[in-house]
Design a protein around this nucleic acid. Structure first.
Length: 938
RNA sequence: GCAGGGGUAGCAAAGCUUGGUCAAAUGCGCUAGCUUGAGGGGCUAGUGUCUUAGGACUUCGUGGGUUCAAAUCCCUCCCCCUGCACCA
């Protein structure tokens, strides 16, 4: 089949008929959206999953008779697009190569995309083209960009609503920061695309010299065990005045590096330089014991980490222990044990170093030992000294931290856990405490409650994600909602700030409903009273609703609430939860969302797609290579909804081959149909009734599977199992009766493979024999199974036949026979069925025999019954189900005699009853069981 | 650390809720045969071990337990993946 000409042909037809541009007020509605794409590069095959899943659902609902709206738009808000344009302007070689090698964009084209707007338009056009080629049933009239003036008006209205509700707050807040660009940095701003990780640590203050020595630690609970402090003898130190919020000013000793970095977090003033030697001459005062402790040199202290000064706990920190050992001071500075851990003595750090063979502070294994000991002591270690005695490491840590901060003996500082992180500009990133930061306060308890209420009424797919939503609602707090730069919408309460990307994408589903009307009205004519009217039904005295306003109001009321929201599952913990929050903040309960559907990602030949691996398959390239319907099918059906699906060549070719196979059968069916008189075939054979029983059972289950997004089992049934059935049917029967099959099958797979379906539908001709006539598959009704044709006895019969054939082959194999002259089947005597039923019922030989005595037929052959019962009991599970009786078994075998003979190379096939088996076969015949006839091959 | 998910035959993956028909679907791969001018494609059989009559035995991360019966239920341990925000 030529998939490529198919796309163009049917997409043109759909467009001509405007099938995807629904009008309001027509029948039951269904409104669904998928997370809009971010056009900073072309889309790859992974992007196709969410939209294809959504489209399959949209097409299914349409065939169920719903008036379906599926819109889309482009999200251009935020800084990644700016960063991308900047990299292009800087002629970033790596980026040019990725575009060239992976996406086939020539460097001359890339070079032109230095303006963010041009970049957006270029990539969004590319993405749109890909979506059109994928055949998505999108209403394109509603497309917009989040930097469009009309959308800006909408978002500003949304933020004023949030503000009025009291959900907008202001405060200060730490962010990863580039001191050279003077901007917060995200993963896309850093060298190697590393995500900067913020971490809060405790800096304990030791009085020394003219001020305090702050030492950062992850383990404040070990403070009682501090014997000394460490200074890097090669680092440059300064004395600086610090004014922390809510605490009195202090003079602190820091490395120059720490001073530079921490001045972004605290108000710091340098007083003077201090040489390391000078520090080493001081004594420090232990904040708990008030004892004087020495300050010693150590090479492992990194000047750029934390404050550049470290406290020493030789009993519990391998580095400290090793450094003291290296200085030969262990004797004069004995380690002080703080935590008691099973399996360890008075100096766990020393013991673990010995156990692991760690030599000195420069040994790589020291890090490993530190982690191992920390993990152990955190859970199993018990604090020895009051007031923390008996607590484990984790509990003590929190308590001590709290106590120290309250006593102003420690301050909390933020560091980058994965430092050093470098900005693309080359500068070292730091943590900056941003003042006057605006937030959306998702921490508001009443709002959380409302959101939980909304969630409780929503359908969440996959169902297991509900707990993720609940958890997310629980831990969300203030979310910074503005940034200094980026595309998008200006923050209405401070127009120097831009609303950031996760905050302007929580309510746009409502905007879609009116997007096409708003475009007509124009941004300059839009104000809050318009949105108040359309979304909230509020009339303001100074603004009388126009016809356009009324039309917009009608659209919103018709389409809302949103029936289904789709995205990949990584958005649950932010976007999707924000989306529910914002809906509850602004709309009444009847407009709260109904459902979310989250899918996994797509891997490529079993591996995660990544730029560095170069295994990204651009969507349009894939379409050109494999065809739309093949991609739609593979991407959505090769894994369960929540799991990652895999795109691989073998699977894609497998799907294409099966489609081609079906097409061949269809061609033949159409040929045969022309020869024969039209009309339903009558007098179907057993095997063809079997085939239709299977088909109708699948069609019956299909609707539910679409509704539940069980796309993998559904796809398996519709394509793989169906093709296997077709092959068995054609093996069993010389003539095939497939017209009805194709009519049902074509419509049942149409949501998955809309182009193939249309082609098949057209080939079958306008006059339908089994289905309601409809010009296009896309606008046909989803088929309802003819349940009268479903017959489990037929399925049992074919299964029996296959079992019997397998047994014959097995016997032949054991006898090393290549061919046979005859195969004789001896069907069990009817009384055995009775005995079987008793065994299944009682599962106990004694009870079976007692019952058998009451039945004349069984009573007269008790030894045989006992023997049979013993045999059946061995595999009790095998006989709990329904079974065919002797007559049915015989009928199946008799009917298939010719077929069996052909299968066994023309052997004579004989079917006998146990009762009338000839004497020489009597022993064999006696072994016949229900479901397992005796087989004699000769 | 917190939260969620997972470990099944060469690979991928279903089964686990509701224990028995599970040596365990299905696809891929592999082996053999047929078909085809070759290849691709298609068809058939096989693909844990042993077995000259359809059988037996051992398997579903580890170690225990419950049960007549466990991949499925309970407990221990080991290992892997994802997310933890200001970033789309």
């Amino acid at each position: 089949m030529d998939f490529h000409s198919l796309h163009a042909k049917w997409q043109a037809r759909w467009n001509k008929e405007n099938v995807f541009e629904p009008k309001i007020g027509k029948g039951p509605k269904f409104y669904l959206t998928a997370a809009f794409p971010y056009p900073n590069s072309p889309q790859h095959i992974g992007h196709a999953r969410t939209y294809t899943t959504t489209d399959i659902y949209a097409r299914f609902r349409r065939m169920q008779g719903d008036n379906v709206l599926f819109p889309m738009a482009f999200h251009v808000t935020g800084t990644p697009i700016l960063a991308m344009a900047k990299r292009i302007e800087a002629k970033d070689a790596e980026l040019f190569e990725i575009f060239d090698k992976i996406y086939g964009i020539p460097p001359t084209t890339t070079a032109k995309l230095t303006n963010p707007r041009d970049l957006v338009l270029y990539f969004s056009a590319e993405i749109e083209a890909g979506m059109l080629e994928m055949g998505y049933s999108i209403d394109w009239r509603r497309k917009f960009y989040t930097f469009d003036a009309v959308f800006n008006k909408f978002i500003q209205w949304q933020f004023r609503q949030l503000h009025d509700a009291g959900y907008i707050t202001k405060g200060s807040h730490p962010v990863p920061w580039c001191p050279s660009d003077k901007q917060p940095v995200g993963g896309h701003d850093t060298k190697g695309d590393v995500d900067p990780e913020l971490e809060e640590v405790t800096a304990v203050l030791f009085e020394a010299g003219e001020g305090f020595i702050p030492t950062i630690t992850y383990r404040p609970e070990t403070l009682p065990g501090v014997t000394n402090l460490w200074v890097n003898p090669n680092a440059k130190y300064v004395l600086a005045k610090m004014e922390p919020k809510g605490a009195s000013p202090r003079s602190l000793y820091l490395t120059q590096e720490a001073f530079d970095s921490l001045s972004h977090q605290f108000a710091l003033q340098k007083i003077k330089d201090v040489a390391a030697e000078k520090l080493l001459a001081f004594k420090a005062v232990h904040p708990l014991t008030k004892k004087a402790i020495p300050i010693l040199p150590a090479s492992f202290v990194e000047p750029g980490t934390g404050t550049g000064l470290v406290m020493s706990v030789p009993a519990h920190a391998p580095f400290d222990y090793l450094a003291l050992k290296d200085l030969n001071l262990l004797a004069s500075i004995p380690p002080i044990q703080v935590l008691d851990t099973p399996g360890f003595g008075a100096c766990p750090a020393g013991e673990i170093c010995q156990k692991m063979g760690v030599k000195n502070q420069n040994d790589e294994k020291a890090e490993e030992a530190t982690k191992a000991l920390y993990k152990l002591e955190a859970h199993e270690g018990k604090m020895k000294a009051a007031p923390y005695a008996g607590m484990n490491g984790i509990a003590a840590k929190e308590k001590i931290k709290e106590d120290l901060v309250r006593a102003q003996q420690a301050v909390q500082i933020h560091i980058l856990a994965n430092a050093p992180v470098h900005c693309r500009c080359g500068a070292l990133c730091v943590v900056k405490q941003v003042e006057n930061q605006w937030f959306i306060n998702y921490g508001d308890e009443k709002w959380k409650e409302k959101t939980r209420e909304a969630l409780a009424d929503m359908r969440i797919l996959p169902a297991g994600l509900r707990r993720d939503y609940e958890y997310t609602i629980g831990w969300l707090k203030e979310k910074a909602c503005t940034r200094a730069s980026g595309l998008g919408t200006k923050f209405p309460f401070d127009e120097t700030q831009m609303i950031e990307a996760l905050s302007d994408s929580t309510l746009y589903m409502a905007f879609y409903t009116i997007a096409h009307i708003v475009k007509k009205i124009g941004a300059d004519k839009l104000d809050d009273s318009f949105f108040d009217f359309v979304f909230l039904g509020k009339k303001t005295a100074n603004a009388a609703p126009t016809a356009d306003w009324e039309a917009a109001r009608a659209e919103f009321l018709y389409w809302y609430p949103l029936d289904s929201r789709h995205s990949a599952h990584d958005l649950v913990h932010n976007h999707l939860t924000f989306f529910v929050f914002n809906h509850t903040a602004i709309f009444g309960k009847k407009h709260w969302p109904r459902q979310t559907v989250s899918n996994g990602f797509v891997t490529m030949e079993g591996k995660k797609m990544s730029k560095s691996m170069g295994n990204i398959l651009p969507l349009r390239k894939a379409i050109a290579e494999y065809g739309t319907d093949v991609i739609r099918f593979v991407v959505t059906s090769s894994a369960e909804l929540e799991a990652d699906s895999d795109f691989n060549q073998a699977a894609a070719e497998g799907v294409a081959n099966r489609i081609n196979l079906l097409e061949n059968y269809l061609e033949k069916t159409i040929e045969d149909g022309k020869k024969k008189a039209a009309g339903r075939s009558s007098g179907r054979t057993r095997i063809s009734r079997w085939f239709y029983s299977r088909l109708h059972a699948r069609v019956r289950d299909a609707a539910k599977q679409y509704e539940e997004f069980q796309l993998r089992p559904l796809a398996k049934a519709l394509l793989y199992d169906t093709v296997n059935d077709l092959q068995w049917y054609s093996r069993r029967s010389p003539a095939l009766d497939l017209r009805e099959f194709f009519e049902y099958w074509t419509l049942a797979v149409a949501p998955f493979m809309p182009h193939v379906a249309e082609e098949f539908w057209e080939k079958m001709g306008k006059k339908k024999e089994y289905m309601e006539a409809a010009p296009l598959a896309v606008s046909s009704s989803f088929p309802a199974a003819d349940e009268k044709q479903i017959d489990s006895r037929l399925e049992m019969g074919e299964q029996h036949l296959q079992d019997v054939m397998e047994d014959v082959r097995h016997i032949m194999q054991l006898l090393k026979r290549e061919s046979v002259n005859s195969v004789t089947f001896i069907v069990h005597a009817p009384w055995k069925m009775k005995a079987r039923a008793l065994v299944a019922q009682h599962k106990n030989i004694k009870l079976v025999m007692e019952e058998a005595k009451k039945d004349h037929e069984l009573a007269i052959r008790q030894p045989a019954v006992a023997q049979l019962a013993g045999k059946l009991l061995k595999n009790i599970g095998a006989i709990t189900g329904e079974a065919m009786d002797a007559a049915e078994e015989k009928e199946v075998l008799e009917e298939a005699k010719e077929f069996l003979s052909a299968e066994f190379g023309g052997a004579q096939v004989v079917v006998l009853d146990e009762a009338n088996a000839p004497l020489p076969l009597a022993a064999k015949a006696a072994g016949a069981l229900p479901g397992k006839p005796s087989i004699i091959i000769a």
